[in-house]
């Protein structure tokens, strides 16, 4: 029951995320978020990195539906392997590297730039480790690293949800809100991931 309600909430947020991605079709130098990134769009690598991130990072989200269900994993291991490959390659080759590039130019100054760059690097590293462990057949370690990786994947949703909550509650200045969620958006997720991992490790 809890699992299904979680899945329902997750579906809701995935639809919101899809809506955000769809804003960028047709892609342009002025669309949505880019309206306030005009200083950077002249850099030849900014727009490609931005659009790669928008259109590939979203492909990490379906993993939430398939990868963590024991039943599905046992009954249809091929589904787990297929979606796992999509997840891993999208992040390692596109999502995280492009996230790193745009993170360097994040709004809100050095603090949020560090937050997003760190996020991109950890996201890559956890996903890479999870992949390596699976290849080696170390499935317990694979599971642990995937929990970390997915916690950071979820930051796409939690960052935006926190922003919504903080703005509704406190009406902060826009960039103050951004600086807060740049950190809050993923550190709390990671903390929860570690708690879950601690539970798993406990004999």
């Amino acid at each position: 029951m809890l699992w299904w309600s979680l899945l329902l909430v997750y579906t809701f947020f995935c639809i919101l995320m899809l809506g955000i991605v769809l804003q960028y079709i047709p892609a342009g130098p002025d669309t949505a978020f880019l309206g306030i990134k005009q200083d950077y769009i002249e850099l030849p690598w900014y727009l490609p990195a931005f659009y790669i991130h928008v259109f590939t990072a979203i492909l990490a989200l379906p993993a939430g539906f398939t990868q963590f269900q024991k039943k599905l994993r046992r009954k249809h291991p091929a589904v787990h392997r297929f979606n796992g490959r999509v997840y891993v390659f999208m992040i390692l080759l596109f999502g995280a590297p492009s996230g790193l590039v745009i993170g360097v130019y994040a709004n809100g100054g050095v603090s949020s730039q560090i937050a997003f760059v760190l996020l991109a690097m950890l996201w890559w590293w956890f996903t890479w480790q999870a992949f390596v462990k699976a290849k080696k057949g170390l499935f317990r370690a694979h599971r642990i690293f995937m929990i970390r990786s997915f916690a950071l994947t979820l930051s796409a949703i939690t960052l935006r949800a926190w922003k919504y909550v903080i703005v509704a509650a406190f009406h902060p200045h826009p960039m103050d809100a951004y600086r807060i969620v740049a950190w809050l958006g993923w550190t709390l997720n990671l903390l929860i991931a570690e708690l879950i991992i601690y539970q798993i490790r406990r004999p």
């Binding site: 955000i20 978020f33 949800a161 922003k163 826009p174």
Partner: peptide, 16 residues
């Protein structure tokens, strides 16, 4: 205008 438009559209919604 760019920042006004951005604030108008995105300040209090789910997004950045």
């Amino acid at each position: 205008k760019r920042y006004e438009a951005h604030a108008e559209k995105y300040y209090d919604v789910f997004g950045r």
